[in-house]
């Protein structure tokens, strides 16, 4: 076959050989890049998808919260879609609610902004404590004396209008851990 080709297409054999090699490599690469490319496109697709965003949910009535300003932990269970499954009630996380002296309510996501463990509440004096890397947060969510976290607890938006009616509605959201900026995910 090569000799026939050579006979039909006279020219520099070395150059032709180079062309053959180059075309083989390029064509081979192009063919392989189809499945690999498609695969990678699906792999990285979560980057382009939108996050689930904040979810507005009623957690309590103001009068249910302790009057002394100590926080109470509320589970966030809401409708959620995870890939192909739509859960009517899915546990999403938990939120600390705390009555403020000015009549308002403060809400914090209980997920530690350091690495994402669940933060617990110890006492008004000791504040919140993360059982993983031992960060301490003060009652108002700010960083305590010993705190390896890059920022204080993530506060969540409390609906002021509903608060007037005595209802605590919170926009529940998760934030990227390990960075100073409070970035929603």
């Amino acid at each position: 076959m090569p000799s026939e080709m050579a006979a039909r297409q006279p020219g520099d054999p070395e150059r032709r050989e180079f062309m053959a090699k180059a075309v083989s490599i390029v064509a081979g690469g192009a063919i392989v890049s189809v499945p690999v490319g498609v695969g990678i496109a699906t792999l990285v697709s979560p980057i382009f998808g939108e996050g689930q965003g904040g979810i507005k949910i009623r957690l309590a009535a103001v009068e249910d919260l302790p009057g002394d300003g100590s926080p109470k932990l509320y589970q966030v269970v809401a409708e959620r879609t995870d890939a192909w499954t739509k859960y009517p009630e899915k546990p999403l996380g938990s939120v600390f609610l705390r009555k403020l002296e000015n009549g308002g309510v403060a809400a914090f996501n209980s997920s530690c902004p350091h690495a994402g463990c669940s933060v617990g509440f110890k006492s008004k004096e000791e504040g919140y404590y993360c059982p993983c890397h031992e960060s301490v947060f003060l009652l108002d969510g700010s960083m305590g004396k010993f705190c390896v976290s890059p920022r204080g607890l993530d506060s969540l938006e409390v609906d002021k209008d509903r608060l007037k009616d005595g209802e605590v509605w919170v926009t529940f959201q998760n934030f990227a851990a390990g960075i100073e900026e409070k970035r929603a995910i």
Binding site: L73, P91, G93, P131
Partner: peptide
């Protein structure tokens, strides 16, 4: 269970 705090992570 993401809503159930786990002190032993």
């Amino acid at each position: 269970d993401p809503s159930q705090p786990y002190n032993a992570a």
